[in-house]
Design a protein around this nucleic acid. Structure first.
Length: 812
RNA sequence: GCCGACGUGGUGGAAUUGGUAGACACGCCAGACUUAGGAUCUGGUACCUCACGGUGUCCGGGUUCGAGUCCCGGCGUUGGCACCA
């Protein structure tokens, strides 16, 4: 960029040439491919691998990768053997839908996209070990995804059941519950329908307590840990049994057993198996009509439109606390998939029940009251406040007891009468992994009329996804692969008679739930992951990624790891020791998107400014874990900063001694950057280096070699190419990344003269210069020399507070 | 509705965790060097005031010698969850 005539011996800083040169050298010399078997002090630096879109790398990808790369490079400068792999999450509905949209085949499009991504990632100067790349749609990878399915199957963790599932009519596939938001498809926003299909599930719910309890042991971003806790959704309560005349008992789940004296009805979910049994002949027609109505209602109006509906079954249950008969209703505000599919209606203390009671004129009884409330005043809304001072009322011999205590006491009392048991419930469901789509790993199961479902023998893996032209999904709910007899008709592995392959493929989240296990062993065709390498390199030391995967991807990965541990295939059960969520890059205060037309193309920016400036600028936008607002104009400042280092490196002198002031600033900077980098405080580390460069170059002085050389090491993680070139210019023949991290001398950090702020009655009135060993009395004496302060301090101060090295506060 | 995060100049953001608010950078203003400047360098830049001085970290209270930071009550922005009993 600079046209300034440089001194004859200083070549202009030309990022394009330097970056190409060093990327080539790193590749030729294997600089970024550590010896995984022999390298000491292993550090596994993982970044979330991208889905290779046709648009190429998004600026958000590069923000994420650069931050992770800086962390990895810093660890390497600290002397660790750093393994920083990357790959491509190339299977899945994203890739398939895009292929359909542009009329191409995903098997043709994906490799093109991967080539483009690889090119862009190389340009960004990441310290990636390209010899360990994985591509999830490659048979050499998905062979092991299928193997993984079989391991879970063997353990009884994979099972098939007919279930009401979420069907997206636009994507034409089943969606996991977690892919449905407000009754809409997370991907395309279509209204989701309910369908009853046979699906494969993993028993994630079985691991809920462990997945929850382990969270306490993880060094993860707090927001991510909280999101996982919420998702797993532990709630402590009780099962309470209600007698129903001439029928089975109804068991409900409640977290408020203390309110049972106020339960004035019981409700079953429409799908509850007992509905058919308890309904009285007189009410059967009405109930059947209601069930029919809910069945045909789509998920949206059921889950989003919260208008209460319901119907009385005619049955009567006995409240086990009061002994009173209460009606049994059916209503769709009760969900079959949670708890027991039945609840007790306590309108006084639950908003939903209150609404239901008002609509159907059911009795509302108050059984909890705040200390100052009248126990007999009618309720105008549900009283669900959770103050510990709330007391039970109208609750027999429990009246007057505080709520927390009553929760336990009531259950214990009912337990004695065999009407209740304490229960912990989790919100976490089993993971539906079936997808009625084409672009994924076929689920390795064969259905035989005489043997039933038979797993494909492991030595016959992979079940190769056939290259077919009519891969588009249709509305039948049957996978495209089912249209190909020649593929799906196979002999049964057990008995040899003609059988049928499973034609569904598995969820993309399964591909990514184990990829970190594959990386170190990516070049091994004989095993999914080598035992010795895995023991040495896993769990992942630091994982950096987006919080949009806080729940699904991270939870599934944790589940898979636990399942493999239980199968004896791993010796750890948490895959990611440390996880940090990076923030999001926005532009003009809004998310970048094509529709808003505010997308920034990374290729253009690297062409114009160079990867080093681009990387450093992205990290300078704001705190890494919070993200930042991308502004086009700001990158000039960072480019200028690099230019201002490039010059001195080429013109520095080794004669004489470095300047004392500069040296003190240098050591302060080494400390600051060394403290900031492990905590991902990239923006402040860059600011500190800028400050140092301003000091170093003050008054256009000639810079000493010892002033600039350590700076290159501090800057190297941000601007790897430029610092390598400068390092070479200073006469080094090996990579700067093998040069270690500079140390600072604490003795040099203390200035000889300190500036102390002086406050009088809390207001800053001036500053004084004192020697570094000055006492409170010295500072006070010095302060009184200041006429402004002397004028304010006319009497003996009431109080003097001295904060050593910082300020003196005088109270008069 | 529930849970969490956040609120600082024209802008992005700093602030050693209770100690001189606005580091660093963008932008802007002025100057230097220039045929030229969208290059480079130097200086200035929170607000009010000619000045002395005063006021300032969303608003209102409080604790403290001292509050951007801690406490109480509001308002706003944003992310997640949501008929989960």
């Amino acid at each position: 960029m600079s046209d300034t005539p440089a001194p004859p011996d200083t070549p202009a800083y030309d990022p394009a040439a330097i970056e190409a040169t060093w990327q080539q050298r790193w590749a030729d010399r294997g600089t970024n491919s550590p010896d995984l078997a022999s390298g000491g002090d292993p550090y596994y630096q993982l970044m979330m691998f991208p889905y290779p879109s046709a648009e190429g790398l998004h600026i958000g990808n590069l923000f994420a990768f650069t931050g992770a790369d800086i962390h990895g490079r810093f660890q390497r400068l600290q002397g660790r053997t750093v393994f920083e792999p990357i790959g491509f999450d190339s299977f899945g509905i994203h890739s398939e839908n895009f292929a359909i949209k542009v009329g191409a085949h995903p098997a043709a499009l994906t490799p093109q996209n991967v080539v483009n991504f690889r090119r862009q990632l190389h340009r960004a100067g990441l310290m990636v070990d390209w010899s360990k790349e994985v591509v999830t749609s490659d048979p050499s990878y998905y062979k092991w995804t299928q193997w993984l399915f079989l391991q879970l199957y063997k353990q009884g963790l994979a099972y098939k059941k007919a279930a009401a599932v979420n069907w997206c009519p636009s994507c034409k596939t089943v969606l996991a519950n977690e892919q449905v938001k407000d009754g809409q498809c997370e991907r395309c926003d279509s209204l989701v329908e309910q369908r009853l299909l046979e699906q494969w599930f993993f028993r994630t719910s079985q691991y809920a307590p462990r997945l929850l309890d382990n969270i306490a042991t993880l060094d993860w971003s707090e927001t991510t840990r909280q999101a996982q806790r919420n998702w797993i959704g532990r709630s402590d309560g009780a099962h309470v049994t209600f007698r129903v005349a001439n029928a089975h008992d109804v068991t409900v789940f409640t977290t408020r057993p203390d309110t049972i004296f106020g339960a004035t009805w019981v409700v079953l979910a429409p799908e509850h198996p007992l509905v058919a049994e308890i309904v009285t002949p007189a009410r059967r027609a009405a109930v059947d009509a209601y069930l029919e109505r809910t069945r045909t209602r789509d998920v949206v109006s059921r889950k989003v439109n919260k208008e209460k509906t319901g119907v009385f079954t005619g049955a009567v249950a006995i409240n086990p606390a009061t002994g009173q008969p209460i009606p049994v209703w059916v209503a769709d505000y009760v969900l079959m998939e949670y708890g027991t599919g039945a609840v007790m209606g306590v309108p006084g203390h639950d908003e939903r029940d209150f609404e239901f009671a008002e609509k159907f004129a059911l009795p509302i009884v108050r059984v909890v009251a705040g200390a100052d409330d009248d126990a007999h005043a009618p309720l105008t809304e549900a009283y669900a406040a959770k103050s510990d001072a709330d007391l039970l009322v109208n609750s027999g011999h429990f009246s007057g007891m505080p709520v927390p205590q009553a929760k336990k006491a009531v259950v214990a009392w009912l337990e004695e009468r065999r009407s209740a048991t304490p229960v912990v419930n989790y919100r976490l469901n089993d993971w539906c992994i079936s997808r009625q789509r084409y672009w994924g790993p076929p689920i390795p199961i064969i259905y035989c009329d005489s043997c039933g479902p038979v797993p494909v023998p492991e030595d016959q893996l992979p079940v190769v996804l056939p290259l077919i032209d009519d891969f588009r999904p249709d509305d039948s709910g049957i996978s495209p692969l089912a249209r190909h007899d020649e593929w799906y008709r196979v002999p049964c592995p057990t008995c040899g008679i003609m059988a049928r392959r499973e034609t569904d493929v598995s969820d993309t989240f399964l591909d990514s739930a184990w990829y970190f296990l594959r990386y170190p062993s990516a070049d091994r065709a004989d095993v999914p992951f080598d035992a010795a390498l895995t023991r040495k390199w896993l769990p992942v030391t630091t994982y950096i990624g987006g919080n949009e995967h806080a729940v699904l991807h991270l939870l599934y990965s944790r589940f898979i790891t636990m399942a493999l541990k239980d199968a004896g295939l791993l010796d750890f059960e948490e895959p990611f020791t440390r996880f940090r969520a990076h923030g999001m890059i926005i532009r003009d205060g809004a998310k970048m998107s094509k529709s808003k037309g505010n997308v920034v193309n990374p290729d253009d920016l690297i062409d114009r400014w160079g990867a080093d400036s681009f990387r450093t600028y992205l990290m300078f936008l704001g705190p890494y874990e919070e993200g930042g607002d991308y502004r086009d104009s700001g990158i000039t400042g960072v480019r200028r900063f690099l230019d201002r280092i490039w010059g001195p490196v080429h013109e520095c002198t080794a004669d004489g001694a470095p300047d004392a002031t500069v040296l003190r600033k240098l050591h302060a900077t080494i400390r600051k950057v060394g403290d900031d980098l492990p905590a991902l405080g990239y923006n402040t580390a860059i600011a500190a280096m800028m400050e140092y460069v301003n000091t170093m170059r003050a008054s256009e002085r000639t810079v000493h070699r010892a002033e600039v050389e350590p700076l290159l090491q501090l800057l190297a993680p941000f601007a790897p190419h430029m610092t390598e070139a400068c390092w070479e210019q200073l006469g080094h023949t090996t990579s700067i990344f093998d040069s270690g991290w500079p140390t600072y001398d604490p003795a040099l950090l203390v200035a000889d003269v300190l500036t102390i702020a002086v406050q009088v009655n809390g207001k800053t009135r001036g500053t004084v210069q004192v020697g570094k060993d000055a006492t409170q009395a010295d500072v006070y004496t010095a302060a009184l020399q200041d006429p402004v302060i002397a004028k304010l301090v006319v009497t003996e101060p009431k109080k003097i507070i001295y904060v050593p090295g910082r300020l003196l506060s005088i109270v008069v």
